[in-house]
């Protein structure tokens, strides 16, 4: 068990502010020196689509935050294999390098982290 933080992101970039506010706390945690891993589940994998532009009127895009993650030493991005397939995506076409995990790995990650936040 580690005190590292796992942030689970289950919403796509547009239509709500869940993704943005989940990424916000990830950056704050990293800035405070916590080791942060992100897990993209369900529609959350769409956060990693390349070629994103600004969202609905007035909504800032989240893609620039994804691009900044390595500057914050957030380099462990976990993506569920089944959810990628469901969205018709392949890991190689995403805008950043990810670690593709299976459903079994999800529960292992949850057990491994003492701190989990779910968005």
């Amino acid at each position: 068990m580690t005190a590292d933080l796992l942030v689970i992101l289950r919403h796509g970039p547009y239509g709500s502010s869940w993704l943005r506010e989940g990424l916000d706390i990830s950056l704050v945690a990293a800035a405070f020196g916590q080791k942060v891993s992100l897990m993209f589940l369900g529609e959350g994998v769409l956060a990693l689509m390349p070629g994103q532009v600004k969202g609905a009127p007035g909504q800032k895009a989240t893609a620039p935050i994804i691009d900044m993650l390595t500057m914050y030493d957030i380099d462990r991005l976990l993506v569920c294999r089944d959810d990628l397939q469901r969205m018709g995506l392949q890991a190689e076409e995403l805008c950043v390098a990810v670690e593709v995990i299976s459903g079994e790995n999800i529960s292992a990650e949850l057990t491994h982290h003492s701190n989990v936040l779910n968005f």
Binding site: V28, A29, Q34
Partner: peptide, 11 residues
């Protein structure tokens, strides 16, 4: 307060 406070609570 800031989000840092949420992380502190979690700790």
């Amino acid at each position: 307060t800031g989000l840092g406070q949420l992380l502190e609570l979690q700790r």
